[in-house]
Amino acid sequence: MPDPSSGTRKWGMVIDLDRCNGCEACVVACRVENNVAVAGADECGKGRQAYWIRVERYWHGEFPNVRASFMPILCQQCQNAPCEPVCPVYASYHDRAEQVNAQIYNRCIGTRYCANNCPYYVRFFNWFDYWFDPVVPTINVAYTNPMRMGLNLDPRRNQLNPDVTVRSRGVMEKCTFCIQRIRRARLDVIKQGGFQSADGIEHVKVPDGAVQPACVQTCPTGALVFGDLSDPESAVSKLATSERRFRLLEELGTEPVVIYLKELRP
């Protein structure tokens, strides 16, 4: 448990399934914020689509009395993450300061072991260089031919978020809890003069609600709430004590910090 007096946080999220209507606005927002590649219809058909947050849809009952239920699933940022120790090169490790499950793209060699060992299926492999070559699959000339590196005219490049890395082929990627936004919020506090320590940026205290990942910011029904679970006064901590709380596949002992709320109906 991080020390509450320092700025070290245990970021967490509450997802209220009773509020989620399955609109998938979070999926779109996440894709735009985090430069998640569009794989194309063919690749989707082969199961290669990437979405750092997805809305799983399950049907209940028999036709015509059917009811759909929706479940947004993103990286659960497990405190005992099964994906971390299996990585041979520390591409997947636990960031002590932010208490999130970090993925270092340029260290990743693409064994895909982490994705196999993720019970939530929230790790996505870059099967091709989606951003550099619109025709998939072809031999990628962007890397083999240095002349084309600067001449890539794919217009989708203009849509990229400069705060987030564009992942090359062969590496694993996943939800980061929009760590670029967390860092931005800390920098904002420093800019306003609220922090005078040389301890490092991780110790900057960020006010509750100052950080919102793209999915949370976009959710029209307010089903997603993000904040500091180590601060008992934060909105997310208060929601997390709800009677409706449960965590996904909790029996595996992964200690996720994403908490779902769902009223049990008979």
Partner: peptide
């Protein structure tokens, strides 16, 4: 040169 996607492996 092109990517692991030319193999049949997928997610999951």
């Amino acid at each position: 040169l092109s990517g692991m996607g030319v193999a049949g492996i997928n997610r999951p």
